[in-house]
Amino acid sequence: MINLNVNGKAFQVSAEPDMPLLWVLRDLLHLTGTKFGCGVAQCGACTVHLNGEAVRSCITPVSRAVGKRVVTIEGLSTDHLHPLQQAWLELDVPQCGYCQSGQLMSAAVLLKEKPDPTDADIDAAMSGNICRCGTYPRIKKAIKEAAKLQKENTHA
């Protein structure tokens, strides 16, 4: 049995220690917001937070998550209140939407570590997340918009 903390809740799962965190989340915990896109850390669709870092869950053995805080898209905020979600809504970022969980989880780390990101920062943070619909221009705009919202929220 493996003990996990996902989105603030404790779970016990029966899994081999080398089972990727992605499949534990999706197939054992039924948290399907985290997506499978490539299986080899190329596309970022499976990005989740592990102690605040944007790990690619498809190649992260579940054993690495033991004793750490796992946050998935379902735990980013429960009611679209994260500034990134607000900005995504405001700018209608998603098209098919499949990659967007990963995009948001990556962007959330960027925004936490660099509250006022430049284009270069966004390129440096977000180029591990592939979007085949081509929403990159909107993602870039929305991250900047979210940065503004985040600032307003802090000063409010």
């Binding site: 944007a54 790990v55 992260t60 053995p61 990556s106 960027l110 660099k114 440096a124 943070a125 591990g128």
Partner: peptide
């Protein structure tokens, strides 16, 4: 940010 080595390299 979201592209730290250890995000992919175990």
């Amino acid at each position: 940010y979201a592209l730290k080595c250890s995000n992919c390299h175990q």
